[in-house]
Amino acid sequence: MPTTMTLLPLRDRLAQPVARVPDRTFGIIAGGAALLTMAALLGIAVLLGINSADTFRHFGVLGFVLGTAWDVGSAAFGALPFIAGTMITAGLAMLIAVPVGVLSALYLAEFAPRWLATPLVMLVELIAAIPSVVIGLWGLVVLTPLVRDTVETWVSTTFSGVPFLAGAPVGSDVFTASLLLAIMVTPTIVAVSREVILALPANYREAYIGLGATRWETVVTVVLPSVRAGVLGACILALGRAMGETMAVTMTIGNADRVPTGLFDQGQTIASKIATSFVEASGPEEVGALLGLGLILMVMTLAVGIVARLLVGRSRAAAAS
């Protein structure tokens, strides 16, 4: 409308075009950045898949997953020792971390006075921030001999007839690695569970306390049943972290490529196997098999992570409604 533009300043202003290019460019750049992470995720799956395809083809998927030997000399590669090591250490860690973590979450959400809860929560969350390799160093130099000379010696002599508990304790074994894992993942359970518990409306509790129930009874009858899904999600989230944790385990598990025969036997997790063997890998076959291990670990943690997110998400949604 060139005629009105020359006649009237206001119309002129209204008809002024706004440059759209910067807006679009910015949107494209930001979208690109967001998609880059998606691309990395896909890239990881694809690259690991391609590079380990030969391994899976050669041994068969089941053959690789269930194979018990990792022998460079005969080029036999089986993932079972590491899958077993991953599940055993993560499982043992959860046996310790879940009760301790949930109890602590209850304390920090329900019982501790506010002035105490705030710094305690910060301290607990600091544990999660400590680099894995530092925990590993402490585990290797301090915890390993300590555990070997106390708990392990006592248990293995006292229960020498019991399978899984017998054997000469070495310190660098499944038990110590699991202990470190428990230390590392408990903060996750505490933080997420506490958040879920705090999201619970206060009137839930008050009604029951008003009836004469003690605080603990209220927690058991009202709080815990309401937050079950969320706390379970927190635990599974921690399980996922325990399965993927690398350095602390690598430095304390003893690095033996076999399915552990007992609590005080040495072993290897998928993550620790990759960390210790990658650089010294004998050739493309072993590298392919190690990448195959990476793919298995990715699938395992992915499955666990999705379950955890669904549970925590549902619990949060329930608390919000």
């Binding site: 409308m1 009105t4 206001l10 119309r11 202003r13 209204l14 008809a15 002024q16 075009p17 706004v18």
Partner: peptide, 20 residues
């Protein structure tokens, strides 16, 4: 319409409308 210009016209940018 503002001053006879349709604010929802195809020639008019909503961002420009908000400036005025």
């Amino acid at each position: 319409e503002l001053d006879g210009v349709d604010l929802y016209g195809s020639q008019v940018d909503p961002v420009q409308v908000r400036r005025i």
